[in-house]
Design a protein around this nucleic acid. Structure first.
Length: 289
DNA sequence: ATGGCCGCCCTAGGCGGA
């Protein structure tokens, strides 16, 4: 956390919608699919040292809560944590160096898996999601995993919508949403139209989630839509960076009342090139609240 | 255009990832 040097000067139109805090401060929120937090504890600690986010939301921790590596994060100053994991698969966690108040999670699709966790931090509700990948075949009749993905997205839409009971107020929705919605969120729009993560039916379902609270896609608020933007590169590419066949699967969304607070959203692509990396790179947004 | 790699689990091939 650092003090803001200069106050923003919002237009009268947006001023009324801004959330006001007694002291201006800058909150940096990161999301990262870590693909095993125990295997990559040192990698997470390095990222915390070098990037210094205030809040880090992890997905695919693949660790039961009893085995979560708490000590290293304590020592690094991330003493406020809310974790929800299971053995082998899935798992989400929120680490924070700001005080954090755990909120109740929702068991999407009633499967008892660990794909959502929420907390209140810095006056905002933070939702951390790991949306199902959806398997290989983009057809719910032929592939139960794809059906699960679509059902999960529909439930998100309804929960955040006017008839749902998701918490209100200024909110941040982050995570591995496993969908690259826009043309330039993938290396080849044409070649990926029938590939799970970029099919029109998934993109439409994700757009309905976004519209449920008029969520703002912070990365595309900062980076123009005609610029390529990825957060994931397959392990199967020999030279992932040169081939650069990436997809933008990891997202940070904010509610409209935080629009005026958004300062930056960056993908830490270099982290994908570290030793024994996750196949996802962290994404970090800065909010002056 | 395709095949290509990871990490997990009651250690070894199967599952899930995307």
């Amino acid at each position: 956390m650092q003090r803001r040097a200069t106050m923003p000067c919002p237009s009268p139109l947006t001023q009324a919608r801004l959330v006001r805090y007694p002291m201006g401060m800058s909150i940096r929120i990161a999301t990262w699919n870590i693909n095993s937090v125990r295997l990559r504890e040192e990698t997470v600690l390095r990222f915390l040292r070098e990037a210094g986010p205030d809040v880090l939301c992890l997905q695919e921790t693949k660790s039961p809560d009893a085995a979560f590596p708490h000590d290293g994060f304590d020592a690094a100053g991330y003493t406020h944590r809310h974790v929800r994991g299971e053995k082998g698969y899935n798992g989400v966690a929120i680490l924070s160096r700001l005080p954090l108040e755990p909120l109740t999670h929702r068991d999407f699709c009633g499967k008892g898996d660990c794909r959502h966790i929420a907390a209140s931090v810095g006056g905002m509700t933070v939702h951390n999601f790991y949306v199902p990948a959806g398997g290989d075949v983009p057809d719910r009749e032929a592939n139960d995993k794809f059906g699960h993905k679509l059902d999960f997205l529909d439930e998100m839409r309804d929960w955040f919508g006017p008839d749902g009971n998701a918490p209100g107020g200024p909110s941040v929705l982050v995570g591995d949403l496993n969908i690259a919605p826009q043309e330039h969120d993938v290396w080849s729009h044409k070649q990926l139209l029938k590939v799970v993560s970029h099919t029109p039916i998934e993109v439409e379902a994700l757009e309905a989630v976004r519209a449920s609270r008029d969520w703002i896609d912070t990365a595309r608020e900062i980076t123009p839509a005609d610029e390529k933007l990825y957060s994931w590169w397959s392990y199967r590419s020999k030279d992932w960076s040169a081939a650069d066949k990436g997809r933008r699967l990891d997202h940070i969304w904010i509610t409209p009342d935080l629009r005026g607070a958004l300062r930056s959203c960056d993908t830490h692509r270099d982290v994908r090139g570290w030793e024994k990396p996750s196949d996802h790179a962290p994404v970090v947004a800065t909010l002056d609240v």
